[in-house]
Design a protein around this nucleic acid. Structure first.
Lengths: 230, 230
DNA sequence: CGGCCGATTGATAATTGTCAACCCTAGTGG
DNA sequence: CCACTAGGGTTGACAATTATCAATCGGCCG
């Protein structure tokens, strides 16, 4: 089991640069847990009792506003660390993570972190880099929302999804999990109606191919041009 | 000199929980540098050769888009660590930091970080928390830009400025550095025209008091109500 | 097979950006 | 010391994007 996990894990950036025995040490406190499609991994406001590394599947991370509106913060892809609220000094999770397909994650108790870091100091640097790259994405998104109109924001969001969760199919590259127009709207700060109109227009131009909870990008290059030049 | 710095620094969250000798150790590699109003501390895209702690003053951190539009990422207030790109695994600064008033900062060479962390492990946790809280702010901003109309975004931005850089004056609380309508627009993803209209309306209602590069919040409570309830 | 969730599309309204003109004042330099 | 100027601010008119409201369609899952 540990050996299986080690092979699953050794190629992941978080564990990059660790020796086999360090990986085993890190894995000692962890257990792997299955999260069926639709089930919550953790919920906004709850005590941050665990942190995670996703092994397989995809999670949607959502923030709920006081007024009840949702914003999709990001999607978690295999290899990523997540739920590291405590490490950042917050006692509760700042968002809700839900499995959008059947998923598998390594789970550590938050209390294991200090000990883990002292035994494997490189983990602290790993965590810092993880959070740093996430900060960068967030800032990028702020810049996009400040300076780009909706269509380009949707284009950027789609390209990001393609990079993170693209799977080759006959007609192009498909987002590898069920995703609705509403989801895309919540990623880009617009409404499902506007997203629907945009995707319809793109479909007419042969850029993408729609479907129920499905998006296939047929011409990534042209989509990229649209996102950049406008 | 070191003693002076230590007293300046010991109350700052980044150095919280460090003993006096640990603080001295951390300060050993640092020098303090003055940045006159208007001068750049570091620039977007340049090699991240240093990281910093602000001792006095205020910095504006700006991201420039390929199309030449600016977005104000945040303002740095005394006690904050900044320019920690290398620690997050990026070779260059992702934004430009400029002193908006005469400022003073501690400067470390980036190369000193690994050694520093090994001698003062608590710094790694400090840095992680700093980046974590910044990530939180960025996400908060994404949520606001996704769900709130301009007026409430401006209200939130003003309240944040008041908290970070508010100074009591007779008529209320003034932002303690020169700030233009354009700056506020670049913080909230709108135009200086819209900001000007909003501030004018608020001034008529006795909420704020305007002026050239000046904003005084006369009634923070009412502004807060406006930001929250809408 | 039926119901429901997701998607599409039209008509309309509202917010906010754009363009333009103008004012004001702080600071500069003669 | 005063005049001038440039940068910051204000305001109006108009346009455009995008949200809102409403109706309808269609295909999947139970």
């Amino acid at each position: 089991m540990a050996a299986l996990d080690r092979s699953l894990v050794s190629s992941m950036p978080i564990f990059a640069g660790l020796g086999p025995q360090q990986i085993d040490e890190a894995l000692a406190d962890a257990r792997s847990v299955r999260f069926p499609k639709g089930s919550p991994v953790f919920e906004q406001g709850h005590e941050a009792t665990s942190f995670f590394v996703l092994l397989h599947g995809h999670l949607q991370v959502v923030k709920l506003t006081p007024a009840g509106q949702q914003v999709v913060v990001r999607y978690v892809t295999p290899g990523e660390m997540f739920g590291i609220a405590v490490q950042m000094g917050r006692p509760t999770y700042p968002a809700t993570a839900t499995a959008v397909v059947d998923s598998l994650a390594l789970v550590w108790p938050s209390s294991a972190w200090p000990d883990l870091v002292s035994r494997v100091p490189a983990l602290a640097a790993s965590a810092l880099q993880t959070v740093g790259s996430r900060l960068n994405e967030a800032h990028q998104r702020v810049v996009e929302m400040s300076t780009e109109e909706v269509e380009r924001r949707v284009a950027h969001a789609l390209l990001r999804l393609v990079k993170q969760a693209g799977r080759k199919v006959e007609t192009g590259i498909q987002i590898d999990f069920p995703i609705t127009r509403q989801d895309v709207a919540e990623m880009t700060g617009t409404t499902l109606h506007t997203v629907s109109r945009i995707l319809s227009a793109w479909e007419d131009q042969g850029l993408v191919e729609g479907g129920r909870q499905k998006i296939v990008v047929k011409d990534p290059h042209r989509l990229f041009a649209l996102a950049e030049r406008g």
